[in-house]
Design a protein around this nucleic acid. Structure first.
Length: 473
DNA sequence: TTTTGAGTTGTTCGA
DNA sequence: GTCGAACAACTCAAA
């Protein structure tokens, strides 16, 4: 009787799970194991809401395992100790896990592989990490050629999705620690229900005939609409297979009935490719986790004002579009992608605050907080990363609001002080005449802040700060 | 090796 | 109000 340990980390699913399939193929019994890693749970990048979502996902997974004659074994401690201990306990001949790409995960796995025969398999990205490379074998650092190559490769070898196993035999009487009951679990203000089943339902609804994917291109930039897939938290923890998502996108592209529908589905597939791109980037250039990819931008003289950072964090910058987004994040653990770009640009280029401050805050708040895509997005906005935005591309917080929240619906939802403000002032309330401020019950500087910086002035400051590192010797 | 075309997401200014 | 140019050249990828 041979035994394999299926070590789960961020692949909380039974369907299309290469690590699980590997375990089932290599041993008669399989021990599904999750280690509550104290280092990760106490990291300064950890977020309570994300951890609660993870715990709920583990509970769901355990239900799915019980239905298949198995169960989840949970251990709390350091993975390098707990995995070795469990392996001795169950006399496993195989320990298999899905490959991960953050510097911490890669170091952890290297250390463990010294004492345990650890097999790492693909499944984190839609195409295996490292499989999309230039002709000469080097990694891509520009998205568009990466995406072209990705699509060619995907079309020539679309993977067959692995079915969920009907039965998993797990030895009896293996001790499992209880999952902690996070008090936050009771707080159901987060719009996400964890688990593979919900993820699959959401994907199916998104790509259904006449589903949101077919109008994604026109509507995805509107945070006042509910026009995105909202699948990011599920991809974050592998409750949804990225290959299943990319397959669904490809099928949508092929069945689209007109040009608009087709390019919409392509646009969504592109977002999945961005995810693959940033996962690869972090795997190949792990230092981006701590430093700017472009070395010259490390010399930018950040202003790093703590009280301005506090105003940004709490949604009190005086720019309604920015504040709505930051309050949405604090209230729900999610923020619309367009808003993420706008608030990131505001932090980095209006407040001239180090992108890493914003990156960390996002990790602490986001349910979908994933080191690689989050880092990639921040470095893109800051102009410090691979394939980064040009330094002179500085979002105007007012025009972004006008363009993508034209009626101010998003602002009014999250900034109640401004609910009565007329449309014409909703994105620049400081221009409201005193009389209107009085009538609508929102005195600027009292009920809602005066802008903490003047955008025009801040823009010039940032252009100079970036210019000076360009021309520096 | 050299050459050439291209590069997510924007803003501002002036005609 | 609309439109094109400037913003800055530079690096990357591929032929």
């Amino acid at each position: 009787m041979t035994t394999a340990i299926w070590w789960l980390r961020r692949d909380l699913r039974l369907a299309d799970n290469p690590a699980l399939a590997y375990a089932l193929n290599s041993a008669a019994s399989v021990v599904p194991a999750f280690i509550l890693d104290d280092r990760l749970l106490n990291s300064r990048y950890a977020g309570e809401r994300r951890i609660a979502f993870l715990f709920e996902g583990l509970r769901q997974l355990n239900q799915d395992l019980l239905a298949r004659g198995s169960r989840l074994i949970v251990r709390r401690g350091l993975p390098e100790i707990e995995i070795a201990r469990l392996r001795d306990e169950v006399e496993a001949t195989v320990v298999v896990a899905q490959q991960d790409c953050s510097p911490y995960a890669m170091r952890r796995d290297r250390v463990i592989a010294e004492s345990v025969p650890l097999t790492l398999v693909e499944g984190l990205a839609a195409l295996p990490l490292g499989s999309v490379r230039k002709e000469n074998g080097e990694p891509y650092t520009v998205f568009t050629p990466f995406s072209r190559r990705w699509k060619a490769r995907w079309r020539e070898s679309m993977p067959a999705l692995l079915p969920a196993p009907g039965r998993i035999d797990t030895p009896p009487s293996i001790h499992s620690d209880a999952l902690p009951n996070a008090p936050l679990l009771a707080r159901s203000d987060a719009p996400y229900v964890a688990g593979e089943k919900v993820a699959r339902q959401k994907l199916r609804a998104f790509v259904a005939p006449d589903g949101p994917i077919f109008s994604y291109k026109d509507r995805r930039d509107r945070p006042d609409l509910d026009a995105t897939s909202r699948l990011s938290p599920y991809l974050r923890f592998g409750m949804l297979s990225p290959r299943a998502a990319a397959t669904a996108a490809t099928e949508a592209i092929d069945m689209a009935e007109d040009e608009r529908a087709r390019t919409s589905a392509e646009t969504w597939l592109n977002e999945l490719i961005w995810r693959d791109f940033y996962l690869n980037t972090m795997a190949v250039f792990p230092y981006v986790r701590r430093e700017s990819f472009r070395t010259e931008t490390r010399a930018i003289a950040w202003h790093n004002d703590a009280s301005e950072f506090e105003a940004w964090r709490t949604g009190r910058t005086g720019y309604p579009f920015i504040d709505a987004a930051m309050r949405q994040l604090a209230a729900t653990g999610w923020m619309h992608n367009r808003a993420r770009m706008a608030v990131a640009s505001f932090l980095v280029k209006d407040l001239l605050i180090d992108w890493r401050w914003g990156e960390r805050w996002f990790m602490q708040q986001l349910i979908d907080g994933d080191p690689a895509p989050n880092n990639g997005g921040w470095q893109w906005t800051a102009g410090t990363g691979t394939d980064a935005a040009p330094y002179f591309r500085i979002f105007n917080p007012v025009s972004q609001g006008r363009k993508f929240d034209p009626q101010g619906v998003y602002v009014r939802r999250w900034v109640p002080e401004l609910r009565q403000a007329p449309d014409e002032f909703i994105h620049e309330p400081w221009k409201m005449p005193q009389a209107i401020q009085a009538v609508t019950g929102c005195i600027i500087g009292q009920d809602y802040p005066t802008p903490i910086v003047d955008h025009g002035w801040a823009r010039e400051r940032t252009l100079h700060a970036y210019q000076s590192v360009r021309t520096a010797p």
